Simulated assay, not measured.
Amino acid sequence: MIPLVILYNAVSLDGRITGFNADVELYYDLASKWNVDAVLMGSNTVLKGFGVKPGETLEESEESFKPRVKDPEDKLPLLVVPDSKGRIRIWSELLKMPYINDVLVLCSRSTPTEYLDFLEERYIDYLVVGYQQVDLENALEELNTKFGVKRVRVDSGGILNGVLLRAGMVDEVHLLIHPELVGGTTTNSIFQAPDLDDDEVPIKLYLESMEKIKDDIIYLQYRILDGMFKL
């Protein structure tokens, strides 16, 4: 069984996830109050958030190559990042984030051995799930059975969101709607996936709550009624 999966994004009124003034403090303040065991973040989101290119490294201290002392009483969530191509090389920076207790990298059987060695040298835990790419459903099941993860917050962009939504692995969608319009033709919405076929229908949702938070920002909480299915 996979954990409960909550997709969480800050968006403009026209559904964009970039190009507007997102209230980052509010975003993480709300997220910190949720009782989640893990945060699933896409590799593109990590690279963009830290302003680095795929494969780029930063200066590391000697502590990066030593085992970390883990506090069993630490209730902060585990950060989980799919990275089967070995694009992220700044794990020591991610470990400095104040709202996580540790990191876990999701790899596949196609992940270069050199990258697995890179992770092991830095005592970064990883999980091999899938062949050419990460099998997210299997990964979520492993998180549940091996790590006791019951609730996951997805803090990512449209590509990872799209994979999870299309596969029917999302239970709830939470959105912070900002009173700004971005426009443009570049696709950067919260849900990036192939267009529906003629015999497929949109995912149905149920509005559980709606709240005006601050500065005309609206907080919406939806529950998925059913995933995409064939007519």
Rank of each mutant, 00 (worst) to 15 (best):
R223Q: 13
H178R: 02
M169W: 15
L119C: 11
P98K: 06
E59H: 11
Q192N: 10
P67H: 02
I224G: 03
L165H: 04
N101R: 15
R223H: 06
V39M: 15
K214H: 13
Y219T: 01
K204S: 14
V81C: 07
V182F: 13
L220S: 03
Y115M: 07
D198R: 11
Y115T: 03
L164M: 05
G42A: 01
D23Q: 13
V36Y: 12
P112L: 12
A193K: 09
D83C: 03
L225R: 15
Y222T: 10
D37P: 04
D23M: 06
M169Y: 14
E200L: 11
V105N: 10
I2W: 09
Y99G: 00
L30A: 00
I224N: 02
V129G: 05
D102E: 03
N188R: 12
K53Q: 14
D195N: 05
D226P: 02
Q133P: 08
S110Q: 01
I190V: 15
I124K: 12
K230N: 11
G148L: 09
K204T: 13
K53N: 11
Y28P: 04
D37Q: 14
L47C: 07
V80T: 00
V46F: 08
D215I: 08
N188P: 04
V105M: 12
T187Y: 04
G168D: 10
E121V: 00
T113R: 09
H174P: 07
D14M: 01
Y131F: 11
V80F: 08
L94T: 12
L220K: 03
L76D: 10
T113H: 05
G19A: 09
R16L: 05
E172L: 03
D37G: 11
N144C: 03
I203S: 10
A193I: 02
L181D: 03
K150N: 14
N44C: 01
G51P: 03
V103S: 12
K48C: 02
R223M: 06
V170G: 12
I159G: 00
P72S: 00
D71E: 03
L95Y: 08
R151M: 06
V129K: 08
V69M: 08
K70F: 11
E180G: 01
I100A: 03
D216L: 06
D226V: 01
F50K: 00
Y115Q: 10
A139V: 04
I88H: 10
G130V: 08
M210W: 01
L176V: 02
Q192G: 08
R122V: 00
K230W: 13
T185M: 02
V182K: 11
L231P: 14
K75H: 13
L220Y: 12
N35L: 05
S64G: 01
D117A: 11
G227E: 07
S43Y: 09
N188G: 10
I190S: 04
D198F: 14
L160Q: 10
S61K: 13
P54S: 00
D198K: 11
P77M: 14
T186P: 01
L76E: 06
L196T: 09
V173P: 07
Y27C: 06
R68C: 05
Y28E: 09
